[in-house]
Each structure stands twice: as C-alpha cells, then as structure tokens.
Nucleic acid binder design. Structure first.
Lengths: 258, 258
DNA sequence: GACCTAAACTCCTCTACATGAGTAACGCTA
DNA sequence: TAGCGTTACTCATGTAGAGGAGTTTAGGTC
C-alpha cells in the first residue's frame, strides 16, 4: 500500500510527488500515459484534490510529466540529450562538407530536420548591429530556422550577416546553404574565419519560447550567442540560438597556453 | 482601484500576478520588501488566500519575487551578472599570480570572498574516478569551496586531484593554494597544462543546492565540469562547479581553424 | 542592560466543495 | 456512412476555513 501518511515531517504533497517520481524513474510508470488521474490519486493516497494537484505541479516543474487539460498527465519521454561540441566548428568538418547540426544528430543516432522560418533582409536590431559593427537599423541578411530532433523542436537559431558580405553569396539566400553550412560559403568567398566567440546565458523561457519549442512554462533555456570573426578582424556573422536547457550539453575545449 | 475582476477570460490569479509584475517592472514596488502580505492582497483584490498564493507562486516561478516563511515576499534585486571567460585560464594570468575568481570579481567592481569547506583526501566517486582515470574509490585530494560575491554565495566548486599528483605539492593542502591558484602550482611541479575541457549543463536546483546557494526553489543552475589535461596527456585535475544560472554569463573563444 | 516569554504577524499545508472547460467515445439521427 | 449531440471522463480555477510553523516585536523579569 502506498502508505504515504507517515509523518516524516515532510509535507504530504512532496511525499506523493517523490513516490510518483520514484515510480517514474523505476519505470513502473513507463513513458506514455500511465499517470493515474487526480481522482484516482485522491483515493489511493487518501488526500484531497488540492494536495494531489500540488504533487502534480511539483512533478511538472521538475519536468517529469506533462499534463493536458481534459486528457490527463503523461510521463515525459525525454528526448535524448544532444551534445554541442565546440569541435563542430573545425575547418576540416567544413571542408568535408558536413552540416554541423545534421552530422551531430547522426552521431547521436537520431533523425534531425530543419525548418527554415525566414531568409531575407531585415533591419538590424540594435544589439545585433553593435555586434556586427554596422549602424543600427542597417540592412542585414537574417536566416531564422528551427531544428527538430525526432520530430520535436529542440532549438531555434537566427543568423545575421552584414549585407555587403552576404549579397555576393547567392547560396546564403537559399533555404539550404549547402555542405559545410554558412561558414563554408563565407570561407569560399574570401572570409577566412579566425575565431568564434560564444556566450552562454541561461534564463527561464518566455511565453513565446515555450510555444516555439513546446516546453512547459518555467523551463530553463540556454541562450547561446556567437560572433564569427574573420581573419580580417571583422565580425562576418552573428548567431543567436535558443535551446531547451535540459536537452543539451555544451562542450568546450580551452587551450591552457597563453 | 485594482479592479482585476473584469472577466477577460484570463484566470484571476494570473491577472493578479500580471498586475503585481507590472508594478514591479514599473518600480512601483521597488526591490526590497514591498510586496503586500497575502492577507492584504486578499482584501485588495477581494479573492481568497488560495488565489493570492497561486499568483505569488507564479511570480516566484518567473523569478520576480522571493518569499521567506514567516517574513513575507520581497521583490528580488537581481545580483549583477558575473562573467566567466575562458580567458581566465591563460598561462600569463597564472604567471602573473592572479587568482582567477578574485581577479574577475575585482574587474566587475564587487567584493569577492571564498570559504573553504573542505580540503583533504576522499574516496573518488565513480564519475570522478573515471574522469581522472583512476580506480573507483581510489584516494584523491578534494578541495571544496564556496565563493561569495558581496557577501552572498554565488558558486560552489569541488576540485579533485589524483593523490600521486597532489601529495608532493604541499600548497594544495592549504586553504589558499597561492597566487595563480591550483593550476599554477601544478605547472610549477612539472604538470604543464595542455588543455581544459569544460562541459556546461543546466538543470533546476536540488533542495540542497537551493540551500547552499540560497536560491529559490525552481531556480535553474549551471553545472560546469572541467577536466584539466597535462602535456603528458593525463587528467591532473577535475573540477565541478555549481552556479546560480541567473548570475553568470559564460564566454568562450573557439579558434575557427583546424 | 540581558534575557525570556507571549502575542501578533508572516507564509505553509491541507481539507472539502463547487464550478468551468477541454477531450473522447458512444449512440442516435439524417 | 456522415454528422451531431449526449455523457462521462479528464484537469483548471476558485472559495472558505482550519491549523501549523517560522519571525519579529513588545513587555516583563532578573
């Protein structure tokens, strides 16, 4: 019997949440529907609905379940963690014609896909303009895309390129910029890359982001910004990426020398 | 009057949360105590305590307020963001005798301090042993410390070093390992560092972590793991760091070449 | 002044109930 | 068969009230 009533000093709703969490981790409750309804749990644990709901809220916050109004609560089958290694920017990868994202996905044994949301000119927002060292509001090429892993959206990215850099590279206006991606095209057109500067920020998802990446409200997201600097010392591309934090691990290698 | 009762299709508790959120953003409620008590809000919005609590839970989840049992809810004054740059591992910094953490804090114009929680031998946990390439349970040197910024804890780090590496370096057993930190001492003793491999993970804080870093439950944290590899190809130190996610920005520079 | 206690505040947990609203399945009707 | 409504489930929101547990303060005692 699920005797959760032992007065262990712990609130009942946490005891229930822990009990269910353990069942989920032990696969007693398999990914899929499983989770008993609120009414069921009220009976089972002999508590009121409010208490059950608090337990469920707890599980939802920790990302173990997702609940749908009118249907029930379901054990989340977490998408596999995806590694993002700084190695993905090696020139040799570009020359080999690999698209960073798809190659990584392949390695992880999952099917990846990309949906291009927009490719075309936009007026540079202030922050982007600053990073690109162009006047605020200047025309730049924006490439906005949404990445899927096994059908679920995991990552949204927007790249911006100065117009004078992009205008001579027709592939950049295509949905698919070709093997090796944007960076390969840039290098083919005389913009040898020197360094990529990435900045990692973490915050809770906004309403829009929860929708775009189909997250639960309150989920943390990783906001990755990247500036690509050419050998000429110019920032020839910047990229903003939003990822569900629980689905990614970032790897960086830092030389220890001077 | 705070007429929140308009039936805009939106739940009352969200209307109240939005109302308060707006007041916070407009600085009507300044960082500090401000937020009226639940009883006050019950009167003001003419709703029951449950509804007020839900609104407060919402604000807490979005990180706008923090509430303390028996005292009240306070508008959060976000601590200044601290940058963690991969540059902090430059050998020249080490030779200059800078302690990475304190130097960075100084630059940011805040007062930093460190509390050493433990220095001494421990049996290597499985994951640590694997990263250090020593047998599981082997004796290793652990250095556990808590970093403060302007008096509030921001970061907890544990370093592990293989015993045979550490045993000959007496400074590593001191609370303060001296200028340039652990890495400077390692290099002085023949362990030239080649590369640092950092991996970034994000997740919600556990109960213990919320206590250690005095966070609100549900706050995201950054879990940074680092392996320090010597020129000899050996991992001579590993470090696990837990940081409050909203207080840090991580910077990395990645060479674009091969 | 130093200490202790009691009261008055705060938020926290839980109960019990009522109502609303989304979903799915069944069976009836056209 | 195709479409429609009923019904029976699900979770979501809200009320009213009780008692518990931390925190602060005021007042009293030593």
């Amino acid at each position: 019997m699920s005797a959760v009533s032992r007065d262990s000093g712990k609130p009942r709703y946490l005891q229930i949440a822990d009990d269910l969490a353990q069942q989920i981790r032990a696969k007693v409750l398999a990914p899929g529907e499983q989770v008993p309804s609120e009414a069921d749990l009220m009976d089972r644990y002999a508590v009121s609905q409010g208490t059950v709901r608090k337990a469920m809220t707890e599980l939802r916050a920790t990302g173990l379940i997702e609940t749908h109004h009118g249907k029930g609560s379901y054990v989340k089958n977490r998408p596999p963690v995806r590694r993002k290694s700084s190695d993905r920017f090696r020139r040799s990868h570009r020359l080999a014609g690999k698209a960073a994202y798809l190659a990584e996905a392949e390695q992880a044994g999952s099917t990846a896909s990309v949906r291009v949301l927009y490719v075309g000119p936009v007026d540079a927002p202030e922050e982007i303009a600053e990073r690109l060292a162009v006047p605020a509001g200047a025309k730049v090429l924006a490439r906005r895309r949404l990445y899927f892993s096994d059908g679920i959206p995991t990552e949204e990215a927007i790249s911006y390129l100065p117009w004078d850099v992009a205008k001579d590279i027709p592939e950049l206006f295509e949905e698919n910029p070709g093997g090796g991606g944007i960076y390969a095209r840039l290098e083919e057109h005389g913009h040898q890359l020197k360094e990529l500067a990435e900045t990692v920020r973490v915050r809770l998802a906004t309403k829009q982001e929860t929708v775009a990446l189909s997250l639960s409200p309150g989920s943390p997201i990783i906001h990755l910004t990247r500036n690509a600097e050419s050998e000429a010392g110019r920032v020839v591309e910047v990229c903003d990426t939003i990822m569900a934090a629980d689905q990614f691990v970032l790897d960086y290698r830092i030389p220890a020398g001077d």
